[in-house]
């Protein structure tokens, strides 16, 4: 076990060092690349902390999709930065504040009971009634399904907000070359399989709608990059439907089961598993579509042309 502790300490130090390096990097591109590395290292740390589901989600969404979003924005704004620098007294003051807050939190953390109380007993006792065998999936889609519905709503709200920030059409970017197109042709189907597998695996082992959705979202981002798919104004209705499907099915099922003696979100025992799988499948597709739309960053329509004409 000691060897693993050495590894843990090294990884923990690497995390702290990387976090500092991300924010101290001169070049923004380098900062984003370091940030993606940081995300993957975080995922590794979470595997060590027996949280493989979260590690998958962090690697796929926290590092992968977020990294793609950051790089796309970096290219769009051309790396322009404000040249403002923070005056030294402010730097010292904020540094002292951050140090005080962090050490206060550290003291609170050290004083907290190690391996303290939790809900694992309650989860285990009710797992049979939840309809799925994997505890994290049971929490996400049954015990705390209300939170998960609202989390999908947050994604939906983000698309509405991003679309509402009207944007001019982007300057055309050069294609990435023949190798990229060839790669996309092989990788797309493979990644679709991986995404579907993660979704399917979620009922019994680490994986699930969010991880699967993120991989499928990455597929869509890849397709956008390779110009295998070009969003057109005519596709708007479909896109809207894809964003909404997850929230709509989830909300309707949640409310639909809530009549008579049952509460909202209280699936009938016999139907629990099929209903959860249905919700997960649709939510996966919605997450994929939403993440791709967030990457694309604007509504595919001639709204930008209007903006151009107005000035």
């Amino acid at each position: 076990m000691d060897a693993m502790l050495v590894f843990d300490v090294a990884l923990a130090l690497a995390l702290v060092g990387l976090a500092w390096a991300v924010l101290a990097a001169e070049d923004l591109f380098a900062a984003v690349v370091l940030f993606i590395v940081f995300g993957l290292m975080t995922a590794l740390a979470w595997v060590r902390l027996a949280a493989p589901d979260v590690a998958l989600a962090e690697a796929a969404i926290g590092a992968g999709v977020t990294g793609a979003l950051l790089l796309a924005t970096l290219r769009r704004i051309g790396g322009a930065e404000s040249a403002e620098t923070t005056p030294r007294p402010v730097l010292i003051g904020v540094g002292a504040l951050a140090a005080a807050v962090t050490s206060g939190l550290g003291a609170a953390f050290l004083a907290a009971p190690a391996q303290g109380p939790g809900l694992e007993a309650a989860i285990a006792a009710n797992l049979a009634a939840s309809g799925v065998e994997h505890p994290v999936t049971a929490v996400l889609l049954n015990y705390r399904a209300y939170d998960t519905l609202m989390e999908v709503v947050v994604l939906f709200a983000a698309v509405v907000a991003v679309w509402s920030v009207a944007q001019a059409p982007e300057p055309a970017t050069p294609l990435l070359g023949p190798l990229h197109a060839g790669f996309a042709r092989v990788a797309l189907p493979a990644a679709v399989v991986v995404g579907a597998y993660l979704l399917w695996a979620g009922a019994t082992m680490p994986g699930g709608a969010f991880q699967g959705g993120a991989v499928l979202g990455a597929v869509a981002i890849l397709a956008l990059l390779a110009r295998d798919y070009v969003p057109a104004p005519a596709h708007r209705a479909w896109a809207r439907g894809a964003f909404l499907a997850g929230t709509a099915v989830f909300a309707l099922v949640a409310a639909g089961v809530g009549f008579g003696p049952r509460m909202a979100f209280e699936y009938p025992p016999a139907l629990a598993k099929p209903l959860i799988l249905l919700i997960e499948a649709v939510v996966t597709l919605s997450i994929a579509a939403t993440l791709a739309a967030l990457f694309f960053g604007r509504e595919p329509e001639p709204l930008g042309v209007e903006v151009e004409a107005r000035k």
Binding site: V160, G241, G258
Partner: peptide, 27 residues
């Protein structure tokens, strides 16, 4: 508890605007 009319007004107060938001976005 579900009340006399069988409708849970607390749940309705959260889900109704959500359904409305989706409908507005769709149409």
């Amino acid at each position: 508890m579900a009340d006399l009319a069988g409708i849970d007004w607390a749940v309705a107060a959260v889900l109704l605007p959500l359904i409305g938001a989706m409908a507005c976005f769709a149409v």
